[in-house]
Structures are given as structure tokens and as C-alpha cells.
């Protein structure tokens, strides 16, 4: 469902050109639960941002459901993200003035669904991520793990084909991190959404069904574990 072809991404920082990705080829299939791993600065965030249509490659092409993204307008990419892609961030990025319920419903409200459907789907997904009864809590009234569950619910509630999570456990202690990964794994099975998460933590990599190692902007090995 995602096809990354010969993708290069350069950043220009002042007078220096930073080669963040130096030609990446990668195919991600529907329903996968995979991790992009590598040391800091290896290009994980850059790659996820490109797959997430938040940015476009310097050269090469990325196809989402066989559609190239680099010639799409800003608005078209926003629309594609709204419909097909869910994001989970390292620092949760919840809206502090909204409750757990409202944060999740926010992502559905962008799809202009009927109120009733928004309510039902939001309550269901909150149950599913283990936050039943906490829907009225504000982010600051929840633990890091709970906040990340809200973020996962927010990403998943619109039933996107692809969920991208950039270091989703980096701000959590290892036990909470494990629980989040287990939750993602469970949801990957039940919802059949594709999960791609990045990490530099060996424990986290172990959870992935498939591991892609990045080093200095290149894929150094692609290994599949079971």
C-alpha cells in the first residue's frame, strides 16, 4: 500500500545541505506491523514525514495506494492525510483545552460525520484503548501512557489505512511503553490497519513484525521477525 522509490530528501540548513535520506526503496504492505529503527539522525522522522505526506521528497517518489504524492497540492495532501493516515506523536500532541473525548472526536469532526456517529465511534474506540470512563478527563489529568492512548484512539477512530507513529514510546517509561506497543499490536490485528513506528530502542524493535534499519539516510537491512 506504500511504495517508496529511490527517495532522496535534502534539507538546506543555511549554507549546508543535509542529506537526510540518500535513496530509500521500501514497500509497506496493507496490515503490516513494522518498525523503522536506527540511531538518532539516521532519517527515521524524515522518512515517516514523507510517507505521511507532511513533506515531499527532493527526488524519487512515494506512492500511497499506487498514487504518487509529490505532485499533489498542499490541500490534496491534507485531504489524503485526513482520510487515510493516522498520526501518533512522540509527545502526544493532544489539545490541552479539550477532553479525551473531544480530542478523539476532533479527528472525526474533520470528516463532517453526523454527531451521533461521531459520539458512538469515539466512545467505542476509547473503550477499546482502555480509557472507558475517562472520556471527560483533560490531558493534564492523565498519565503519559493514558495520553498516548488518547492519541492512538484519535489516530485510529477514523479507520485509516495507515497509522504512522514517530517514536511513540520515547516519552514513556519502559513498562508503559510496552503496554502501548501491545495495544498497538492488538489494534493492528483487530482493525487491520497498517502500523509503522520508528524507534531507536531495541526493546521496541522486538515488538515489530518487520524491522527496517536506517543508517545515515540509507536502509541497511530489512529483516523480518515473527
Amino acid at each position: 500500500m506504500v511504495n517508496v522509490q529511490k527517495t532522496v530528501k535534502d534539507y538546506i540548513a543555511g549554507k549546508v545541505v543535509v542529506h537526510a535520506l540518500r535513496g530509500v526503496d521500501l514497500t509497506i504492505n496493507g496490515g503490516e506491523f513494522m518498525s523503522i529503527a536506527g540511531p538518532s539522525g539516521s532519517g527515521k522522522t524524515t522518512l515517516l514525514n514523507l510517507i505521511g505526506c507532511l513533506d515531499i521528497p527532493t527526488s524519487g517518489e512515494i506512492f500511497i495506494d499506487n498514487e504518487p504524492i509529490s505532485n499533489k497540492s498542499k490541500t490534496a495532501r491534507a485531504l489524503l492525510r485526513r482520510k487515510k493516515i493516522g498520526f501518533v506523536f512522540q509527545s502526544f500532541n493532544l489539545i490541552p483545552v479539550l477532553t479525551a473525548f473531544e480530542n478523539v472526536a476532533f479527528s472525526l469532526s474533520l470528516l463532517s460525520l453526523p454527531q451521533k456517529e461521531i459520539y458512538d465511534r469515539t466512545m467505542n474506540i476509547l473503550d477499546e484503548v482502555g480509557l472507558g470512563g475517562l472520556e471527560k478527563r483533560f490531558p493534564k489529568e492523565m498519565s503519559g501512557g493514558q495520553q498516548q492512548r488518547v492519541a492512538i484512539a484519535r489516530a485510529l477512530v477514523k479507520q485509516p489505512a495507515l497509522i504512522l507513529a514517530d517514536e511513540p514510546t520515547a516519552n514513556l517509561d519502559s513498562n508503559t511503553g510496552k503496554e502501548i506497543l501491545k495495544l498497538m499490536e492488538k489494534l493492528n490485528k483487530s482493525h487491520k490497519s497498517t502500523f509503522v513506528f520508528s524507534t531507536h530502542d531495541a526493546m521496541v524493535m522486538d515488538f515489530a513484525h518487520r524491522l527496517v534499519m536506517l543508517h545515515d539516510g540509507r536502509i541497511v537491512n530489512g529483516k523480518k521477525s515473527s
Binding site: G52, L54, A78, L79, L80, R81, R82, K83, F87, F89, S91, N93, I95, P96, F106, S107, L110, R154
Partner: peptide, 11 residues
């Protein structure tokens, strides 16, 4: 950051 997140989500 909040603005960036809302844009990422396709607002």
C-alpha cells in the same frame, strides 16, 4: 506545535 498537529491531521 498544536497548529502543526491540527494541520497534520488534515484540518
Amino acid at each position: 506545535r498544536e497548529i502543526a498537529m491540527m494541520r497534520a491531521l488534515g484540518m
